[in-house]
């Protein structure tokens, strides 16, 4: 618990808990129920665990992986009671989340050594890219960083206006060339703006696009290249925003966006809904991309850095 407290102030913890309440009550309390009164892992329990994981969008492959590992662990460690089984299961899930060899970030701080720090945000339509950018800018601003938002979604109706409102709310600078302009040029010039105006962080919004549209994915690669052209090595972070409501298609999204832009981090939105967000396990497992942020509510403050231990802890607490 002390570990948990280290990263989450009281209200943050409440948000996360509130956001995950549904997840908690549906996944893990069920597991606890299933385990209660049983002294070993039987087929019935594993069946139930499988049902629970799958109905949480964990996906077949990862579910099988979790179950296999749980069984192996149990065989190794012999006897179990409910508590022990719970903690083994927890460990198995944390391990899977840890396999991408990344360390959770502790707070909203860009890594040192890259200044300005350029973030490019990508994802399919309607996952919450712009909202996530607004919340992220707000967090950075609160920590004293100077942030500029670049409106490279020049396609969707009123996207530029939407980002502009978020820039105002989060006291960030705003760079735009208007609607229907070349997004690669906006990205390039936002980077330039950040460099010339002493910004610490630039966050570049892009239009939502389905990962199956080749031209649009090519365009995204081009946007990324244009940033690199202005500032070699940038963007330093390509953030793929995923909607917790999405099912197995999120895996396809991760695959294609990674191919086009070499995604370096994930943000998982809408975790305050009734969706279970189990998709995180599958993607972290298959693509070795760390989850960096989670959206747990509509409010400006309701974006948090992802912490796997705290995440799993809070699921079990």
């Amino acid at each position: 618990m002390s570990f948990f407290k280290k990263f989450f102030s009281k209200d943050k913890e409440e948000d996360l808990n509130k956001g995950l309440e549904k997840t908690k009550s549906s996944i893990f309390s069920q597991i606890t129920k299933a385990v209660a009164g049983k002294s070993k892992v039987d087929v019935e329990f594993l069946d139930q665990l499988e049902n629970i994981l799958i109905s949480s969008d964990v996906g077949l492959d990862t579910t099988v992986k979790i179950i296999d590992r749980l069984e192996a662990k149990v065989a190794e460690d012999k006897y179990l009671n409910t508590d022990e089984l719970n903690s083994i299961l927890k460990k198995v899930i944390i391990d899977i989340l840890s396999e991408n060899n990344t360390v959770d970030i502790e707070d909203f701080d860009p890594p040192t050594g890259t200044h300005p720090y350029i973030i490019m945000v990508v994802g399919v339509n309607g996952v919450g890219k712009t909202t996530t950018i607004g919340k992220l800018a707000n967090q950075y601003h609160k920590k004293g960083y100077k942030v500029v938002l670049g409106a490279a979604d020049t396609f969707r109706a009123a996207a530029v206006d939407q980002l502009k409102i978020w820039a105002e709310r989060s006291s960030s600078a705003f760079f735009s060339k208007g609607m229907n302009t070349d997004p690669a040029a906006v990205a390039y010039e936002t980077t330039q703006y950040a460099q010339n105006n002493g910004m610490d962080i630039a966050i570049i919004d892009t239009a939502g696009r389905l990962h199956t549209k080749i031209q649009l994915m090519d365009e995204l690669s081009k946007i990324k290249r244009s940033i690199d052209k202005k500032y070699q090595g940038a963007p330093h972070e390509v953030l793929l925003v995923l909607d917790a409501t999405t099912g197995q298609n999120a895996i396809e999204q991760a695959k294609h966006f990674t191919a086009a832009t070499n995604v370096t981090a994930l943000a998982l939105t809408k975790l305050d809904g009734s969706a279970k967000g189990g998709v995180v396990l599958g993607i972290s497992d298959q693509f070795k991309i760390p989850i960096k942020y989670i959206g747990v509510g509509e409010g400006m403050e309701q974006l948090q850095v992802f912490n796997k231990r705290a995440f799993v802890e809070s699921l079990f607490s």
């Binding site: 799958i54 109905s55 949480s56 969008d57 399919v124 309607g126 909607d243 409501t245 999405t246 099912g247 197995q248 298609n249 999120a250 809904g273 009734s274 969706a275 279970k276 998709v279």
Partner: peptide, 8 residues
């Protein structure tokens, strides 16, 4: 959204 998972 047709991509919605189990929660639909």
């Amino acid at each position: 959204d047709s991509m919605t998972g189990q929660d639909a």
